[in-house]
């Protein structure tokens, strides 16, 4: 009778089984694992899921810190009206307005320089009535007489009867396009302006909107109205353009 070693047979079967597994190794027949449960650690208070936004209290204490502008721009508007007829009631006006802007208070070298001539006639319709506190309203036409260019220094004398100055007595300034004053009139603009004696304020009607804004503080002395606005702002000096 032939006997078979039990151990020998098992080793053969095991080897075959390994071969079988090797043959089947390329077949992905395993079960797909189920998705993990939601991580409850992500949940916010009250069991609600995180909605993605949290306010964090601002605990920074600035102390005495107060940032200041690196540069300032002094804006200066000075003008006057001559009202007629003398003694009123006024029907017409002629005047002028000089706009100058100075960087860091350097009044020897204006950033921009514009001089206007102004003429105006009285307005007595509903547009004037919309200024509740105005004593009289004029429609003012602005003419740009000086738009930057060479500005004579204070105290400089002309070298001829044509109003020309020595080149050492003038500084070059920018014109209206570089002025930073808000709502600066353009040549030929016609704007409504009204005077309130009680408030000593010259009002500006904002481009036909019917909204009157206090524009200049002034003083009416007989038939002459002097007005001005001076204020200082922060300013970023534009980089110099390459020649």
């Amino acid at each position: 009778m032939t006997s078979i070693s039990k151990n020998s047979l098992c080793s053969d079967v095991l080897a075959i089984a390994v071969l079988g597994v090797g043959c089947a190794a390329g077949d992905d027949s395993g079960k797909a694992s189920s998705l993990p449960a939601l991580d409850t650690a992500l949940a916010g208070g009250g069991g609600r899921l995180d909605s993605g936004y949290e306010f964090s209290p601002d605990t920074f204490d600035p102390g005495e810190l107060d940032q200041v502008p690196n540069n300032t721009l002094l804006i200066q508007h000075v003008g006057s009206w001559s009202l007629s007829p003398l003694g009123g009631p006024y029907r017409a006006v002629v005047g002028d307005l000089t706009v100058e802007e100075f960087i860091d208070g350097d009044d020897d070298l204006p950033w921009c320089w514009v001089v206007y001539a102004m003429t105006g006639e009285v307005v007595e319709d509903a547009r004037a009535e919309s200024c509740a506190t105005c004593d009289f309203v004029f429609e003012i036409q602005y003419y740009v007489n000086v738009d930057g260019g060479f500005r004579p220094e204070d105290g400089a004398e002309p070298i001829d009867t044509g109003g020309n100055y020595d080149e050492d007595d003038v500084v070059e300034t920018n014109g209206i396009d570089d002025c930073m004053s808000p709502e600066l009139p353009r040549d030929g603009d016609r704007l409504l302006m009204g005077w309130s004696e009680d408030e000593e304020t010259l009002y500006f009607e904002y481009y036909g909107s019917g909204i009157w804004l206090p524009w200049y503080s002034g003083e009416l002395d007989f038939d002459r109205l002097d007005f001005s606005w001076v204020d200082e702002f922060g300013f970023v000096v534009p980089p110099e353009e390459d020649e």
């Binding site: 107060d66 502008p69 690196n70 930073m180 702002f233 970023v236």
Partner: peptide, 19 residues
């Protein structure tokens, strides 16, 4: 002076980069 008012854009803002 708090806050400081600027004409145009202030320093350090993205607007400072364009005219």
């Amino acid at each position: 002076g708090c806050p400081d008012i600027y004409v145009g854009a202030p320093e350090g803002s993205p607007l400072d980069d364009d005219d």
